[in-house]
Simulated assay, not measured.
Amino acid sequence: MADRASVAIRIGGSLSPALFPALLAAIESDGAFTDWNGTAFVPDNLDQSVPLYLADHEVAWGRFEAIEAFCVDHGLVFARWAGGAPGAFGPERLVFDGTSIRSFAASDDDEIMMSAETVRGLGSYAAVLSHLAAAEFEIPPLRVNGSA
């Protein structure tokens, strides 16, 4: 049985209308909702002025596997927070900036955490600030249009 955690993801970028059904299939596959109360995603309600927000409780391994793979494959940026599963993995924020995926230790409230070892390894205050900036990558609105 998979360890499970609460998960929230914000997705942004530009997506071709032809690919929108595949994104919907990924959302359905992962069982993601538009809020913590289990409100289903309704495509006609997509607000293209903000990032797409999806969440769920009890997600296997703390990952939206289909959604995250779709985003990476099609260049949609995202930031995903997952709570921890005691004895298995701690809370994290995963950020895909369109080029690379980075994982950051986080709190149960999605605050970025750094160990003393990480701070020493970064070597300077400027490097610490750069690390935090990467973790707090701003997710643009998700736009479904012909420019993807």
Rank of each mutant, 00 (worst) to 15 (best):
R63N: 10
R63C: 12
F64H: 09
F64Y: 12
E65S: 06
E65T: 02
A66W: 00
I67E: 09
I67K: 11
I67M: 07
E68Q: 11
E68R: 05
A69T: 14
A69L: 11
A69W: 06
A69I: 05
C71M: 10
C71L: 11
C71A: 11
C71T: 04
D73F: 01
D73V: 01
H74I: 15
G75I: 00
G75S: 01
L76S: 01
L76H: 04
L76V: 02
V77A: 13
V77R: 15
F78A: 00
F78D: 00
A79Q: 06
A79T: 08
R80F: 00
R80E: 03
A82H: 01
G83P: 00
G83L: 08
G83M: 07
G84P: 03
G84H: 05
G84C: 07
A85Q: 11
A85M: 12
P86F: 13
G87S: 03
G87V: 02
G87D: 03
A88G: 04
A88W: 10
F89P: 01
F89K: 06
G90Y: 08
G90A: 13
E92P: 00
R93I: 15
L94I: 11
L94N: 10
V95F: 09
F96Y: 13
D97M: 02
G98E: 05
T99S: 15
T99E: 15
T99L: 15
T99G: 15
S100P: 03
S100T: 13
S100A: 15
I101C: 14
I101G: 10
I101N: 13
I101R: 15
R102C: 07
R102M: 10
R102Q: 07
R102G: 06
S103I: 01
S103A: 13
S103R: 15
F104I: 07
F104G: 03
F104D: 08
A106K: 11
S107W: 12
D108S: 07
D109T: 10
D110G: 04
D110N: 11
E111A: 05
E111I: 01
E111V: 06
I112F: 12
I112S: 10
M113Y: 05
M113L: 10
M114R: 01
A116N: 13
A116W: 12
E117G: 05
E117Q: 09
E117R: 12
T118G: 04
T118I: 03
T118C: 05
V119S: 01
R120P: 00
G121A: 08
G123W: 10
S124R: 14
Y125V: 05
A126C: 08
A126D: 12
A127M: 02
A127I: 00
V128D: 13
L129R: 10
S130D: 14
S130E: 14
S130A: 15
S130V: 02
H131E: 10
H131M: 10
H131K: 09
H131P: 02
L132T: 01
A133Y: 07
A134I: 07
A134G: 14
A134T: 08
A134M: 14
A135R: 12
E136T: 02
F137I: 03
F137L: 15
F137W: 15
